[in-house]
């Protein structure tokens, strides 16, 4: 399975990668530090099976990144992993095409549970 993880925090990317490595057998994980880099990585790896993205990032935020990916791919599952916990933000992300939403802070178990439908 090929996963694209977009987050400006290296620590958060490592936490997510640790969770993915526990949940999946030998995943291929591509990392990006902002939405702009994330979209560039996506264009090089259009066969990714799932995308996890933060919201607040420099250069291009996660919502803009999500909208750009959805312009070219309506199918790939996209998971927002963010501190933006207000209901209005969740609704905005889902309307823009996010498949599910994980609010930071989270435990590895919560993240795995949210990802489960997309990892099989």
């Amino acid at each position: 399975m090929k996963v694209l993880v977009v987050d400006d925090s290296t620590t958060m990317r490592r936490i997510i990668c640790n969770t993915l490595n526990s949940a999946l057998k030998s995943p291929v994980i591509i990392e990006a530090g902002d939405g702009e880099d994330g979209f560039a990585q996506y264009q090089k790896n259009t066969d990714v099976n799932i995308i996890l993205t933060d919201w607040n990032m420099p250069k291009m935020n996660g919502l803009a990144f999500l909208e750009k990916v959805r312009e070219v791919n309506k199918e790939v599952p996209i998971v927002m992993v963010t501190t933006e916990a207000e209901k209005q933000n969740v609704v905005t992300a889902i309307k823009a095409g996010a498949n599910t939403y994980v609010v930071k802070p989270f435990t590895p178990e919560v993240l795995q549970e949210k990802l489960r439908p997309f990892l099989s």
Binding site: S9, N56, T82, T83, A85, E86, K104, P105
Partner: peptide, 9 residues
């Protein structure tokens, strides 16, 4: 970031 995000909500 997480502390501020949760407080903001």
């Amino acid at each position: 970031n997480m502390i501020s995000g949760q407080a903001k909500a």
